[in-house]
Every structure is written in C-alpha cells, then in structure tokens.
Amino acid sequence: MEAVKAEIVQCQRCEGMNIHDVTQAAPGYGSPESPVVVVGQSLCGKPCMRAQIPFTGGSGRFLNLALERAGLTKSDIFTTNVVHCHPPANRPSLPHEIANCRPYLLRELKIIQPRLVVGLGKDASAALRDVYPDADAMPWPFAAPPGRQPRAASPKLLAVPHPSWIKWQPLERREEYVESLARALRWAFGSSKPR
C-alpha cells in the first residue's frame, strides 16, 4: 500500500492534475485491513488536499457521523476515490482521468479485499460496478443480509447518494442517511474489532 500511495502522490498521468494545492492528489486513507472501503468520485477541495485524507470537512461530516454511530473512526476503514486528484473548479472527472486513475483504485481494492464497498454518488457507484461486475448490489437504505460474507469472496456493493446531495435534504432524511450508513459499517465489521 505504501508503494501505491507514493505513486499516487507523484502521479503526472493527466495534464493539469496533481498541482499542489490546486488539483493535488491524495491517496486512499485508513486501514489496509478494513472490511469496508468507501469510494468517492474524486478528491474534494483544499481541506482534503491539505490533510491528504479523502472526505475531510464539508459533506464528509455525514461519513464522520456514521462512523461515530458505528463506533469507528476514519482510520478504522479505508476511504479512497475513483480519481485521486481534485478536478479544476470542482468539475466532474473526465473519462480519461477515470481511466488513468483506475489502476490505483484496483490495486487499493486488491490489497484490502473488503467485504463491502460503498460508492458515494452515481459516478463512483458506476465505476465500482465496472470493477466488480458480478458482485451483489445491496439495497439502499441498507438492510443487512443474513450471516457474514468471507473476505476472499467478491464484496457486496452499496450505492449511496452523495453526501453533498444529502446535506440539502430534510433533517429526517439526513438522519436516515447517517443511520443506514452506520448499519452498513457495523455489518461489514461484524464482530471483528478494529485494531
């Protein structure tokens, strides 16, 4: 994982990307032994670039609330993005950027071999379906399947609305979002405790 992180930080595959404090890249963050990986479309703005941690500040607070409710911290799980850089002016990621960054995401997922992969937003969820075409899609809001899934099997996929959308929804819907995400995190960890 350290080798992957070093390559992401130094990557120059896309013109205009990975410029310090403008479109800077950040690798995935958290435990390489996590049973759950949370994937966004692209790196958020300056808070994420400076912290070098995906989902820092802003709409990441919904993920933080779900983690807290599940008894976890961001370092217990693994968070990453389909595109590890922050696109200029918050524009959507371009197809060639997604393609150029795909090998990094594939390597992160191969190292971790999660039970559950959560895609935040439509673009991230679509990219994950391409990575895991035969994986079972879980319903949203999350409903835990019976039993626990082995780590070696293809993970379950959970497509979740992007937190930047949910922050504009009524309080009741935001509460349901946080609780459902917390249930998914608890299911993925099961009885195992983070180290």
Rank of each mutant, 00 (worst) to 15 (best):
M138V: 04
P47A: 01
P92N: 09
V39L: 09
T79Y: 06
F62A: 03
G60Y: 02
A153T: 13
D21G: 04
E176Q: 15
P150L: 07
G71A: 05
L43T: 10
E7H: 01
G57H: 13
N90I: 01
S164K: 08
M138T: 14
S59D: 13
L109T: 09
P103N: 08
L106C: 13
E2C: 04
S154R: 13
N18Q: 07
W187Y: 11
A124E: 10
P103Y: 02
C48T: 06
Q169K: 14
S180W: 09
S42A: 15
A99K: 10
D123P: 01
A135R: 03
S75L: 01
E68R: 10
G60H: 02
S192V: 12
I8L: 05
D21I: 09
G16E: 04
A66K: 05
Y104T: 01
V38Q: 03
P146S: 11
S59E: 10
P141G: 05
Y177S: 07
N90S: 12
I19A: 05
A89C: 09
F78M: 13
R174Y: 06
M49S: 06
L157C: 10
R61E: 12
V131C: 12
G71W: 04
A25E: 12
Y132I: 02
G16S: 08
S42K: 03
G45T: 02
D136T: 14
Q149T: 10
G57W: 12
I111S: 11
A99I: 00
Y177Q: 04
G190M: 05
I166T: 15
E179H: 14
S191A: 15
